[in-house]
């Protein structure tokens, strides 16, 4: 319990600082590889990212984006290489991050209870949970859904709840895996607005997408992943103005990067 309280104290202190101060940055990835079933899914990926940007990991389906995010979050261990969040291992840094999965995990509880459960697991005292959960509902525009069973929400609402649930934990870094896959344009717009709102509070955003339009709208920094290899890593405007590799050029141009 002492450790939990210490985490919250540190958070309280960090919110007073300028958004540019990201204690979990830089994220340093060195020669990371991961194979499953005899297939190299992530192949010798290295990069460093720092604070103050929205990083979009872009690539076609099957390029290894989701897996890379899970490696960064410490849900899987790399077969080779090293990942360091400001010197911390992914497992140690996990408590200071939020993760939103492509198919959001909705507990069989009300919308509100999905939020208070996450806060309780993170050790927030009972008296503060409800208030924090209400704030998160307001951020996600789900106030009138508080008592509704979470699994009866629409796809877009479920994804907003998942982001609100991560937001409520006041993470320093938010990892999002294809947050708008299978959503209609209206729901997608709501999610993108929510992601910006989370970032405005000083949370570092790292997300994956295969949607080039979304990458153009959200990214300040693009990492182009193709067949498990990191082909490009550049500022968004530079990447979209002149991709350096044929695969990226083909993908941006609407072709299939075979």
């Amino acid at each position: 319990m002492a450790e939990v309280r210490a985490t919250h104290d540190r958070r309280a202190a960090s919110t007073d600082q300028a958004p540019a101060a990201h204690p979990l940055m830089p994220l340093e990835v060195h020669g990371v590889g991961f194979a499953a079933g005899g297939k190299q899914i992530i192949d010798n990926v290295s990069f460093t990212i720092r604070g103050g940007a929205r990083t979009v990991i872009l690539g076609p389906n099957g390029s290894g984006k989701s897996l890379l995010l899970r490696l960064l979050h410490g849900l899987l261990a790399p077969a080779s290489g090293r990942i360091s969040w400001a010197g911390l291992s992914p497992a140690r840094a996990r408590r200071r991050q939020g993760m939103v999965f492509q198919r959001p995990v909705m507990l069989r509880r009300s919308t509100l209870a999905n939020l208070t459960h996450a806060l309780a697991v993170h050790g927030m005292p009972r008296a503060q949970r409800r208030e924090q959960a209400r704030r998160a509902l307001a951020v996600a525009g789900l106030e009138d859904r508080a008592r509704q069973p979470a699994r009866t929400l629409s796809g877009g609402e479920q994804q907003r709840l998942a982001i609100a649930r991560a937001w409520a934990l006041e993470p320093e870094v938010l990892l999002l895996d294809e947050p708008t896959a299978n959503l209609d344009p209206e729901a997608t717009a709501a999610i993108e607005a929510l992601v910006r709102a989370v970032e405005a509070r000083g949370t570092r955003i790292i997300m994956t997408t295969h949607d080039i339009g979304q990458a153009r709208r959200l990214a300040t920094e693009v990492m182009f992943l193709h067949r498990g290899r990191l082909l490009e890593h550049d500022a968004a405007h530079a990447f979209f103005a002149g991709p350096a590799t044929p695969a990226a050029a083909s993908f941006i141009g609407g072709g299939l990067p075979l």
Binding site: R70, V105, A118, A120
Partner: peptide, 25 residues
């Protein structure tokens, strides 16, 4: 199977995890 990654993402301990699974089931 369904909750595992979410619980790990929250850094839930074994007791929190069992309690969550029993209640939701």
């Amino acid at each position: 199977e369904e909750y595992g990654e979410h619980l790990r993402s929250l850094d839930a301990g074994p007791l929190d995890s069992v309690a969550t699974l029993l209640w939701d089931g």
